[in-house]
């Protein structure tokens, strides 16, 4: 299932938390060779994990991490504006309607539909919170995966070549893209909506507030 968890609530899911940061170490350090820091527990965290980001996480039935991404507002410190201005034509992309999506990670043992499930969840966040675009940093391997699930970003700029390439891209979800990723993920839209409501609360009726309070 999809979980939406702010960093300061991650301790409620210790197994998920540990395996997410370990899978990130495995993906970004071991497989991609990025210059990221790994702590003595074998976990990969950077300064942006300290800014209380919102994680969107695919939790496997055994409670471990299957895949995840990290969301932050572009109105505050974020990777794209702090480190990748050279890939955005020098434009500092900053708006309450644009969020940053980074550290898109898939576990080695992830089911094939995990990436699509995460994109579907990204769409829930967009429609639930009025987000119009994501700007994200991603590695070369993801280009093919995004294309496969019908959710290719628009590449603003890239550096490096081959498997070492790092790109900055933009996503904006159309209803059609949403249906496409839902199908690829094999998750009915109402299930996806239920997971979102589980994290952020249901729209409980207040039509008779006086009675409810009494």
């Amino acid at each position: 299932m999809i979980r939406y968890v702010y960093a300061n609530d991650l301790n409620d899911f210790p197994r998920l938390k540990r395996t997410m940061f370990q899978d990130r170490a495995d993906q970004f350090k071991a497989r991609l060779g990025w210059e990221v820091d790994i702590d003595d527990k074998g976990e990969e965290l950077d300064e942006y994990d300290g800014l209380n980001p919102l994680y969107v996480i695919w939790e496997k039935p055994d409670g471990t991490h299957g895949g995840s991404m990290r969301l932050l507002p572009t109105t505050g410190p974020c990777m794209v504006n702090d480190h990748f201005l050279n890939l955005t034509d020098g434009v500092r992309i900053s708006s309450p309607l644009i969020w940053e999506c980074t550290r898109f990670c898939l576990s080695r043992t992830a089911e094939p539909r995990t990436a699509a499930a995460l994109m579907l969840a990204g769409g829930e966040v967009m429609s639930g919170f009025g987000v119009e675009h994501y700007v994200g940093v991603f590695d070369a391997r993801m280009v093919r995966i995004y294309r496969m699930i019908g959710s290719s970003p628009e590449v603003l700029g890239a550096m490096g070549t081959g498997r070492d390439q790092i790109s900055v891209g933009l996503w904006s979800f159309t209803e059609q893209a949403r249906l496409s990723v839902a199908e690829k993920a094999g998750i009915p839209p109402e299930t996806s909506r239920r997971w979102f409501n589980l994290a952020f609360g249901d729209l409980v009726t207040t039509d008779q507030p006086a009675q409810r309070i009494a």
């Binding site: 209380n52 919102l54 639930g128 919170f129 609360g201 729209l203 009726t205 207040t206 309070i213």
Partner: peptide
């Protein structure tokens, strides 16, 4: 607090006694 998504109050947790009063 410490979050960044907009909320409709109906989604919040009003279940505790102090919150209801």
């Amino acid at each position: 607090y410490q979050r960044f998504h907009p909320v409709d109050w109906k989604r919040l947790d009003w279940s505790s006694k102090p919150a209801r009063s």
